[in-house]
């Protein structure tokens, strides 16, 4: 084989290797993107849940405080 054919064969191998690496990166980054999206959705859903819990607790605390105040008034008399 002459040098030109050898170099062409080597170039084709290099090119094939580059394409494989690119395809791998495309695939892995797509997977990562998907996982990231689902994590973000979970964070958002949990944040909403947490907000609701906080509001419920605040309401309960408010009610309890009112009840305590009412009973203190009652005890004074």
């Amino acid at each position: 084989m002459d040098e030109c054919s050898l170099l062409r064969a080597k170039l084709n191998r290099e090119k094939e290797a580059r394409k494989q690496a690119e395809a791998l990166l495309e695939q892995k980054s797509l997977e990562l993107y998907g996982v990231n999206q689902s994590l973000e959705q979970r964070v958002q859903a949990r944040t909403v849940q947490l907000q609701e819990t906080i509001e419920r607790l605040q309401l309960a605390m408010h009610l309890a405080e009112s009840a305590v105040k009412a009973s203190q008034k009652y005890l004074k008399f």
């Binding site: 990166l25 495309e26 980054s29 797509l30 990562l32 993107y33």
Partner: peptide
Amino acid sequence: CSVHGHIHVEVRKL
């Protein structure tokens, strides 16, 4: 009709 979504994901992932 779906092409915009595809471009979005394929570019944004990187």
